[in-house]
Structure formats: structure tokens, C-alpha cells
Design a protein around this nucleic acid. Sequence first.
DNA 1: GCCATAATTCAACAACCGTTGAATAGGCGC
DNA 2: GCGCCTATTCAACGGTTGTTGAATTATGGC
Lengths: 192, 192
Amino acid sequence: MSPSGRRPGTTRTREAILAAARAAFAARGYTAASLRQVASDADVDAALVMHYFGSKRGLFAAAIGMPVDVDGLLDQLRDGPVDTLGERLARFYLRMIDAPSSPVVALLRSAASDDEAARMVREFISQEVIARLVDTLDVPDAALRATLVGTQLVGMAVLRRVVGVEPLASARPEVVLAWVGPTVQRYLTGAV
Amino acid sequence: MSPSGRRPGTTRTREAILAAARAAFAARGYTAASLRQVASDADVDAALVMHYFGSKRGLFAAAIGMPVDVDGLLDQLRDGPVDTLGERLARFYLRMIDAPSSPVVALLRSAASDDEAARMVREFISQEVIARLVDTLDVPDAALRATLVGTQLVGMAVLRRVVGVEPLASARPEVVLAWVGPTVQRYLTGAV
DNA sequence: GCCATAATTCAACAACCGTTGAATAGGCGC
DNA sequence: GCGCCTATTCAACGGTTGTTGAATTATGGC
């Protein structure tokens, strides 16, 4: 067993804990993931996780923390032609969920059993990202359209990365986008 | 406190336990729901739940147990016109997830943190229901189409009943179906 | 009315959970 | 090289979990 006290050499354990936490939350969701499992994966005592992040919630917030520039993303999406907006939005989202230990997958998995995670997902769809994009399109039923876009994107994420249904889970991005892109496009700009 | 031993009168506690279990699994998913909470909701000791169902898994299986005649449903869907198949499938699914303590919602919520529940969802999509329906349509890429139908239906269920995003969560079924039906139809029979 | 059987509770188990406080050991500025 | 700060572990806490075995009480067939 490792002795008490500080270890020799420079310290990179904080990053190791965060990496283990991201993997655990993405694999099991907030409730089912455990501090002790994260600590063990990072070769560290559970109390050290508390020392760095204060609580399990604090660890979750740090692990999920969005490195995404939402404003920049929205500007970039609005720059291109409107009739490919659906595919470009779906492409960006697909790249996020395909990342290993994806925070988006962690958030979705957590929303099933944790109310705060569910609240975060709600706000991303109905306030922070999708709804803001739809609001610039000058279409009727904007709020409903935003949630419909959400259904298609979230459904894709759940079946591809949470449940893992083949052949969707292993399909190349271009194949998935050829089907899903037009759906998102119709929800964004299609006739009622 | 209630005394030990059998209670007077006819016994309906087994059904009370099942009802409490369905509500608990639909509200929190397999992992987060607890035997003791279910027992308490049914005004019963936790050991009685074990006596009736053997284990938490057994209780889950009994609570989820499909009262749906899959073969009959598929026959009925195939009876109508093919060009409204998408809407009719979506309508049936929407009615299932809108039911209180819906087993489908319980299954989806559980799939986020429990591998066995995820396996059940996988099989419903890729073997038992959707894939069998698509197989009768004589279209290319049948297996992929089945999973795409799944993405739209599951996404609708997650946003409407698990995450609860407005205005979708409170939208009237006809409004939702007017948008989602055509999407499912395109995945079923649309050109590649 | 006896008796097997079923319904029901109680008490305890070992395992795990998030969290706390104290102890120890190394890095680093002075 | 002394001393403060930070990194780190240990041991324990109260709580919850699924599960077990024994004890208690009512029902239903004979």
C-alpha cells in the first residue's frame, strides 16, 4: 500500500481524476457512478477527490464543464447557407457525441436518474443552443421546432452511444448524416 | 407499527407492490429506484417484495413485462395503407409512452445505467418489433432504417417524458404526430 | 376445529455510498 | 535549511442498499 503524505515528483493527479470522472459519468451516469470508483481508477484515495472538487456534484460540474464556445458556434452555423443548416448542426452534434468520454453522453445518461442533469439538458435545448438558433430563422412555432430538433439529435445520441444499437452504432458519420440531416432541416425550416 | 404475521381479509398486496414498482422504475430508472422505497409505497416490508419476486431483477422483469401482443400489433399495422404506416406506428408508440408509469419510459430510463435494460431496448428495436416491421417492406438498408425509426421514437420519448422539455412535453398528440409521423414514414419507405 | 400453507414482519447481515477530520510527507519561497 | 502550503492517505462516521432466515399470524381445505 502507498504511504500517507505527498508523493514525490510533479503532480498531475487532478487531471487524472477528471479523466476518470469523465469516463465514469459517460459510462454509467451521475447516480450510478461512484466517487470511490473514480478515485480507484485514478489511483487515488476518495478523500482526495473531495479535497479537489468539494463534493460529487462539484466533480460532475467540473467533468461536464463545457469547453464549447456556444456564441462562436452559432455564428459559424449562421454563416453558411440556410438550406444545409440541418446537416451542419447534426454534423457538429455527431462529432461531440462520438468523442470518447463525451460530456454530452454523460449528461444524457445522467438525466435519466438525476433531476439537475435533466434540467441542464432542458436548458441546452430550450434556451442556450437549439432554441437560439431557431429564433434567428423567422419561422412559426419556433419553440416547438427547437424541441423537435432535440428529439432527433438526442435520439441519435441515445441509440448510437447509450443503448448501442447496430448497425447505427458503427455506421460511418456520413451515412448517418445523409438520413438525419434532412430530418433536422425539415424541423428547422420545413413547412408546417 | 403493524404486527407480524398475515393480515386479515383478502390479499391484494402483490398488485400494490407491482403498481408501486412500475411507478418507481418509470420515475427513477432501475438503478436509482430502491426496493425499500417500493415496499414503503406499497405499505409493506421490503422482505415481502423479495418473497414475491425473488430479487430486484425479478421485480423489474415483472413490472416491465409486456402486456402487448406484438404479433397482433404488427398484423394490424400491416393491414392499413403503407403511406400512413409511419404515423400509425408513431401514434401507437406515443400512446404507450404517455401512459402513467409507462413501462417503456421505465425501460428507457433504466437503460442509461443498467446494461440488461439497455439490452432489452436493443432487442426491441433491432429484433422484436421495429426491425420485423421494416423487414416486410422490401426496402434496401432495412436494418439501418429500423434503427433510424428508433432514434426518432426514442428521442420523442426522452424529451417528452424523461427530460420534460416544453412545449413538447405538453403538446397535444396530434400536433406531435403531424411532425414526427412524416419523419418515421421517410425512414420506413423513403428514397435513400 | 385441525393443519398445512401462504402472507407478513422483524432483525440482522455485509457491502457500498458520500463525507469528514486528523495525520503525514513532499515541494517551494525565503 | 526552516516553515508554510499543498498533496495525499487513513480511519471512521452515519446512511442506504439488496438479501437472508427465522418468527408470527391468518386463510382455506378437510
